[in-house]
């Protein structure tokens, strides 16, 4: 049976989303089943317009270094954050669930308001159940 990972993606900052993306592709390389629960700030990052434009996101730390950070990523050939999620979905069973309440807070209520990588809109109890059953559980 494949190992399971549950990731609560609370953060919507570009540095943490990048870290989450790296962890995610690592899980994909390991053929894990992954359930991502996109919570408060994360839901904004997955809103269609924001997901399309990385400059709309802030940094969690060292906001003054945003440009250097983005330049450095580019120089090292590291994917933009959303590409990590796309690639992981191609490689393994990754489901992206967005918290309905969080979406509403950012004015995104329907599936078409989110990036196409999002699988469904859910309530919080699904996250709790998934977290209980998984082998690796992270809150980012």
């Amino acid at each position: 049976m494949p190992k399971r990972m549950t990731m609560a993606l609370f953060s919507g900052s570009i540095d943490k989303l990048t870290a989450a993306g790296v962890v995610l592709t690592g899980a994909a390389a390991d053929d894990m089943d992954v359930d991502i629960y996109v919570l408060l700030q994360g839901a904004r990052a997955f809103r269609k317009d924001v997901a399309a434009d990385a400059t709309k996101l802030e940094m969690a730390e060292n906001p003054q270094l945003k440009q250097e950070f983005l330049d450095s990523l580019k120089k090292l050939n590291v994917n933009p954050w959303l590409e990590f999620f796309r690639e992981a979905k191609e490689l393994t069973n990754v489901k992206i669930h967005v918290c309905g309440l969080a979406g509403k807070i950012w004015g995104a209520e329907k599936m078409e308001d989110f990036n196409e990588l999002v699988d469904d809109i859910v309530g919080i109890s699904e996250y709790i159940t998934a977290a209980q059953e998984s082998d690796v559980h992270l809150f980012i």
Binding site: V22, T25, G26, A28, A29, L76, N77, V78, L91
Partner: peptide, 14 residues
């Protein structure tokens, strides 16, 4: 060689 982590790992998996 052109990629940073996790690039090589993914390339190996594929």
């Amino acid at each position: 060689r052109g990629t940073a982590c996790p690039g090589p790992l993914l390339a190996a998996k594929k």
